[in-house]
Computed example of a mutant assay.
Amino acid sequence: MLWLEVVGWLGSVLVVVSLMQARVLRFRVLNLIGAVLATGYNAIVGIWAFAVMNGAIAIIDVYWLWRLLRERHDERAYAVVDVGTGDAWLRHFLDVHAEEIGRFQPGFALADDASAFLVARGDEVVGVVVVRDVGDGVGVVDLDWVTTRFRDFTPGEFVYRRSGVFAEHGLRELHVDPGPAMREYFGKVGFHQTATAWVREVEAA
Rank of each mutant, 00 (worst) to 15 (best):
W198P: 13
E100V: 13
Y78C: 13
F166N: 11
H192P: 01
S163H: 10
A98M: 00
E5F: 00
W48V: 04
E5P: 00
K188M: 01
M53P: 02
E75Q: 04
M20E: 06
V140H: 08
H92W: 14
G40E: 14
M20L: 15
D144Y: 06
V80G: 10
M53C: 00
V36C: 06
A38N: 12
Y63R: 13
W89R: 15
V7P: 00
F158I: 14
A88E: 07
V129W: 03
V189F: 04
T154L: 00
V45T: 12
A35K: 00
T147L: 01
L90C: 12
G11E: 10
R183F: 09
G139C: 11
G135C: 06
L32H: 05
E173W: 10
G11K: 01
V80P: 08
R91Y: 03
G102V: 02
A195R: 14
V15G: 02
T148A: 14
R26Y: 07
D74L: 12
V7M: 13
E124I: 05
E203T: 13
A205R: 06
V125L: 04
D142W: 09
V7A: 11
R28G: 06
R162S: 14
G46T: 04
A77E: 10
R91D: 11
L14E: 11
W9F: 15
W89F: 14
V62N: 07
A77T: 02
R132S: 12
V13I: 15
T196V: 14
M1F: 05
I33R: 01
F117D: 13
E75L: 09
E99F: 06
V15M: 07
E5A: 13
V81F: 08
I59N: 07
G107I: 06
L65K: 03
L174M: 13
V13R: 06
A114Y: 05
G55V: 02
A114G: 03
N31W: 02
W48M: 08
T39K: 03
